[in-house]
Amino acid sequence: MTTTVTTPGGTAGPRAARPAPSAPALLRARRWLGRNALRIYGALAFAYLFTPIAYITVFSFNDGGRSNLVWRGFTLKNWANPCGAPEVCSAVGNSLKIGITATFIATVLGTMVAFALGRHRFRGRTATNLVLFLPMATPEVVLAASLLTLFLQLAPIGIQLGVTTIVIAHVMFCLSFVVVTVKARIAGLDPRLEQAAADLYATEWQAFRRITLPLVAPGIAGGALLAFSLSFDDFIITNFVSGNVNTFPKFVYVSAQRGIPAQAYVIGAFMFFLALTIVLVADIVRRRRAPK
């Protein structure tokens, strides 16, 4: 592609300045800048995106005591003993438990809905799409407030705020994201593959088990990963419907008043690098398997 497209970020070099053999250094620098402005911009933008991550990672090694606000020297003890600060690990444990349960339910239900939408004709498609779209278009605080009013009204029949209500809420807001992810994968499938299976006398169920499901699996895995990260990281809705149960984001938010222990930074940095590794390894595996 040889187009010279200028973008708001780019300052394309003046056209008149064609490369002359003895172009002054300043002009050459300017031309280089013009050609690479967008790349430089990209590097700056990524630096911006990763600034807080760098901060979190650096301060996870801080020997900073309880509040971890000023740099007091390098230590590995936070990483060696992430449960060293009270409540950190029980909060993370709750978050994992809730995240896994909510992800499992949302992935199963969402995949079923995605198959109905992607593979079947039925009445009420528009209404279904609307019910799926609205939770994504509603601010979290509204979802949180409305669920809380429901749970408060159900309190007399024994519904208490806690792990169950958190899981209910998480499944609710993760479901649509799973549907969207899986549906995109189903839409990208070649329908001829299933027809081929049918031509080879596979029953509908066999074709689904052996052909469709394995092909959709990456979409389901992507939806599940997304659901888990949404659930694990959710604060606003969780804060409203959790009662006394502590989760990791809630723990960090509450400790923000008196200072967050370095162990919380360890958890944050660890989750970041773990997720990055998973995504990158999955990408490498996918590329290796892809036909050359």
């Binding site: 995106l49 990763f50 990281d233 984001p249 960090v252 923000a256 989750m271 970041f272 995504v279």
Partner: peptide
């Protein structure tokens, strides 16, 4: 671009 999401939203804001 999405990677920062994996480090807790609250922690990034505190950072």
């Amino acid at each position: 671009v999405v990677a920062p999401f994996f480090a807790s939203f609250i922690l990034r804001t505190i950072a």
